[in-house]
């Protein structure tokens, strides 16, 4: 095991709303090993995006710690040292909202460079931005002075990625960067991300709802359901033996193209019910109302803890007690 670049310890994030307290993230812990990618998988309402936003500092955690390179950074963004802000970057989900429609691409990608005083003159800025645009395969002379409105979704997301790596960070959070894109464009963007990760020895947190995509990009996977992590494992181990009933349900719901993929899907489990409310989550195991294997008097009473069932493979489920 290499050293950890990011450790999340008992992280909680609650939001006060007029309906009550939304427990978006409720006591989760995980680590990201330096130089690897952790895939954070879940459906809407699972708290996966909130986790990303809290780690990057957009919202302070309600409780728990975020440790980055051994330093506690669980403070609001304004209080984080500039060096940390330069080192952790994020690519957001919605390409349409990720780029300021009123600015030209040079100024969008160049912003982090200016903020961190990494360039002095306009020529220097343009030179650096050109290099960044080349990394994401956008010919600089065509794109530099255009506005986001003229760009397709994939091109916008490529610009977002260029902006995120402008300051040469060591950790990037990708929050569903391709969920709004067509498959052929998704393929381009994912390949660009993979290249950049390799070139810059980037560590990352890759948030997605797409298990097929996750398999192609991350070395570890954490599955979230209603604010909790239900299963963590190295990707290969995970696909050999998905253990949590929710994970199995999720996997069985993935539409696939080929026979080999069909064989990976767990048999005998079928998607039923809907995700519960994060304001009043079900008692005990949060998945028990949808779980075909729920044990009466156990799963609806006691909350299961994450336990290491086999080396590196953690599951929170009473079936494995």
């Amino acid at each position: 095991m290499g050293e950890y670049i990011l450790e999340v310890r008992n992280l909680k994030k609650y939001f006060q709303t007029s309906y009550g307290t939304v427990k978006a993230v409720d006591d989760i812990s995980f680590e990201v090993v330096k130089g690897t990618t952790m895939g954070l998988v879940g459906e809407s309402g699972s708290g996966k995006s909130t986790t990303g936003h809290v780690v990057v500092g957009l919202f302070p955690p309600t409780a728990g710690k975020i440790i980055f390179k051994g330093k506690d950074i669980s403070v609001p963004l304004e209080k984080r040292p500039k060096k940390i802000k330069r080192d952790i970057q994020m690519v957001f989900q919605d390409p349409a909202s990720s780029l300021n429609p009123k600015k030209i691409i040079r100024d969008i990608v160049g912003l982090p460079l200016l903020v961190h005083r990494m360039v002095e003159t306009r020529e220097e800025l343009e030179e650096k931005v050109s290099k960044l645009l080349e990394l994401v395969e956008l010919p600089p002379e065509d794109y530099m002075y255009r506005r986001p409105g003229d760009l397709g979704g994939g091109e916008k997301q490529a610009v977002s990625i260029a902006r995120a790596i402008a300051t040469n960070p060591s950790f990037v959070i990708f929050d569903e960067p391709t969920s709004a894109l067509d498959v052929s464009i998704q393929a381009k963007i994912i390949n660009a991300i993979l290249d950049i990760q390799e070139k810059f020895k980037l560590s990352s947190l890759f948030i997605t709802h797409d298990l097929s995509l996750m398999r192609n990009i991350s070395s570890h996977v954490a599955i979230m359901y209603l604010g909790k992590i239900v299963e963590i494992a190295p990707t290969e181990v995970f696909f050999q033996k998905p253990m949590h009933p929710y994970t199995q349900m999720l996997l069985s719901s993935v539409p696939v193209l080929t026979k080999e993929e069909e064989e990976l899907k767990p048999k005998g489990i079928e998607s039923v019910g809907e995700i519960g409310s994060p304001i009043h989550p079900p008692k005990g195991c949060r998945f028990h109302p949808r779980c075909p294997y729920a044990i009466k008097g156990m799963c609806d009473k006691k909350e299961p803890m994450l336990k290491e069932i086999e080396p590196g493979h953690f599951v929170a489920c009473h079936l494995y007690d």
């Binding site: 464009i185 998704q186 393929a187 097929s212 192609n216 696909f239």
Partner: peptide, 22 residues
């Protein structure tokens, strides 16, 4: 053919580089 190759596979087999152009 290209489009099918672009779909990420659950088996984790490398997928295509996308379709060039737009």
């Amino acid at each position: 053919q290209k489009l099918f190759e672009c779909v990420p596979k659950l088996t984790g087999k490398k997928f295509a580089k996308g379709i060039r152009g737009r």
